[in-house]
């Protein structure tokens, strides 16, 4: 089983109140070298069988139509990893 990872971020030009709140909390911890935080989403989609072109095409379509809303978000990355464990290990 393969895993297709989809990453979605709030549009760069829009305010991200969640990221702002996190950034302020970092500042309170004395971490003043970080000037901004933006918070996005990562989806790990497990595929029955190989993550072939058809599966990738389906996920790419769903990334645009369901996993993100193009009015307020951008899909910033779609890639394949071997498994959920591998996805965790990469990071």
């Amino acid at each position: 089983m393969s895993v297709i990872v989809v990453e979605v971020m709030p549009k760069a030009e829009l305010l991200d109140p969640q990221g702002k709140a996190v950034a302020r909390a970092l500042g309170r911890l004395g971490q003043t070298q970080f000037s901004a935080v933006r918070v996005g989403k990562r989806f790990e989609i497990t595929v029955d069988g190989p993550a072939d072109a058809a599966a990738l095409a389906a996920v790419t379509e769903l990334a645009d139509s369901v996993l993100s809303n193009s009015v307020i978000e951008d899909v910033v990355g779609i890639h394949v990893v071997e498994s959920v464990a591998a996805a965790a290990a990469v990071n």
Partner: peptide
């Protein structure tokens, strides 16, 4: 679209 309130 609707996003989080500006003041959080």
């Amino acid at each position: 679209g609707l996003i989080r309130n500006e003041a959080g």
